[in-house]
Design a protein around this nucleic acid. Structure first.
Lengths: 143, 143
DNA sequence: CTTTAATCAGACAATTTAATCTGTTTTAGA
DNA sequence: TCTAAAACAGATTAAATTGTCTGATTAAAG
């Protein structure tokens, strides 16, 4: 099982961080990304296609084509990738699955969880992919 | 999709909170719990059986039987229920799904996520189900 | 112009998780 | 003792997620 994001989302974030760690505007075929990150190639290809529709990633067809970031890495927040793939329900749904969990009908852990959820949201909103360049390069070298 | 716990785990925590909100030692048939919490009855029955094996819940067979807490509510932590159903991998797995994520091979967000994960673990370890009695009663009244 | 390597599109298969079904055993109470 | 209501056990189905396959389209390069 995954931690909080779907597999699609995990792989999507990995791929965007990977592209952000390369030279600006660099074109990456999905096969390269799949190999470097050990992700099934057809799967990451599909995910990158959906990120293309979301405007986070760009694509170039044909020989020597591939994917590239559609924006400057400093303009891509982690939350943008999550929102594009998994959506933001995660940050509005009840952590215990109670129906109609809301401030006026709070579940028992509403407040305790709310704090953590806000911190997570803030972190993902504050961090842009350019900030992870060095850490991503380190990690990729060790996969 | 669920937030972080599986549906089984969400329902398991709900059911234990429900029992903790009732009188001490009170016997609850799974049908009652299913109706009050709007959970499929065969499903919650299975979940309660597994919590019985884990020693968190006790059971009484036959007519006027049902489930009851096997320990005093002040001795049941939220993390105990999570551990029994979903396990604790959640708190050791890479949030981005990178292979071999560890302090010496950290993923790009290892530190940022680590803080949040620790806080979540601490909260679930600190909170025992007796503390949610009033909030649970409030919520159940509004489902 | 042909070949090659890429995205793209959509169907399909496999796996995991969630939920249901069928039946057995147990026990309180009439 | 009989019946009803419950846990218990195991098989099965359904749904969602993950992963694969086939083929079409596109474009660079020889």
């Amino acid at each position: 099982m995954t931690v909080i994001f779907s597999k699609k989302c995990e792989y999507g974030v990995q791929a965007v961080l990977y592209m952000a760690a390369k030279d600006l505007g660099c074109v990456c075929p999905s096969d390269e990304i799949a190999q470097k990150l050990k992700i099934p190639k057809e799967f990451i290809s599909k995910i990158l296609q959906s990120l293309t529709e979301s405007g986070i990633v760009g694509s170039k067809k044909g020989k020597s084509g591939g994917f590239m970031l559609a924006k400057h890495p400093s303009k891509i927040r982690l939350i943008d990738i999550v929102a594009a793939i998994d959506g933001l329900d995660l940050f509005n749904s009840c952590v215990l699955g109670f129906p109609n969990c809301s401030p006026d009908k709070p579940c028992p852990v509403h407040d305790k969880w709310g704090e953590l959820r806000s911190k997570a949201y803030e972190m993902l909103s504050a961090e842009t992919v350019d900030k992870f360049k060095q850490k991503t390069l380190n990690k990729i070298g060790k996969i």
